[in-house]
């Protein structure tokens, strides 16, 4: 089997071209493969787990392609990045369609309460949460900034589009948060895993920096 540096997990939900293009852009010397083959995911050096659409459909399609095991293996054993629904699926359960997730992290995926949300001018806040919002970095227990935030200032804006957010039971995994209008978790990290609610592949320079840090990360 050919050597794969970065596998982008394809479970048939939407377009992964943006993610693979951005990875190719930051790692021109590495091989980037969009794949739905469990063996290729298992053999890749690092894995990106993106997602768009509805979480119940994503989980169903993941299982339909027999990818659950190889994704869980990668999440435990190699540099792994979840993006958007790829973050949400790592949790136990989502309010979206009352769906079970992969259960790697304890906690729920919740919907923004559109009816009760207003900004400081009293304007209604819309759902989906769509656009550029600040991501504030959270230091780990040793008071260190995560390696993937290197070269990115806390408070930098990233591009979001989502209606649900993760609420981890263990706050120690939170490495980034944003506000809409209440604080919500926008990035988690544990060992070899880093997962974000925003879209680094659509977040201009800051997003490319994060992906650059990921492709060079040695956890």
């Amino acid at each position: 089997m050919r050597k794969i540096d970065i596998a982008v997990v394809d479970y048939g939900m939407g377009n992964l071209r943006s993610v693979s293009k951005a990875l190719e852009h930051v790692a021109p010397a590495k091989s980037v493969l969009v794949t739905n083959c469990p063996d290729e995911i298992a053999n890749a050096e690092r894995v990106v787990f993106p997602g768009q659409g509805a979480m119940p459909d994503c989980i169903r399609e993941l299982d339909a392609r027999g990818l659950r095991e190889s994704v869980l293996f990668a999440a435990h054993n190699k540099p792994f990045m979840g993006i958007c629904i790829g973050l949400q699926m790592l949790f136990e359960h989502s309010e979206e369609g009352d769906a079970a997730g992969l259960g790697l992290f304890e906690g729920q995926v919740k919907r923004f309460a559109a009816a009760d949300m207003h900004d400081e001018h009293g304007e209604k806040l819309k759902v989906p949460h769509m656009g550029w919002n600040q991501v504030y970095q959270v230091n780990d227990s040793k008071n260190a900034t995560h390696a993937l935030w290197q070269g990115i200032e806390s408070g930098t804006r990233f591009y979001y589009v989502h209606s649900y957010y993760v609420a981890p039971a263990d706050e120690a995994v939170v490495t980034g948060y944003s506000c809409y209008p209440n604080q919500f978790t926008s990035a988690i990290a544990q060992n070899n895993l880093f997962a974000v609610q925003f879209h680094p592949e659509k977040s201009a320079t800051a997003g490319l920096q994060l992906l650059h840090n990921f492709v060079n990360w040695q956890p």
Binding site: E120, G131, W132, N133, Y180, P181
Partner: peptide, 8 residues
């Protein structure tokens, strides 16, 4: 907080 967007 979320920024308003300019879209050319």
């Amino acid at each position: 907080m979320l920024a308003k967007r300019i879209i050319p």
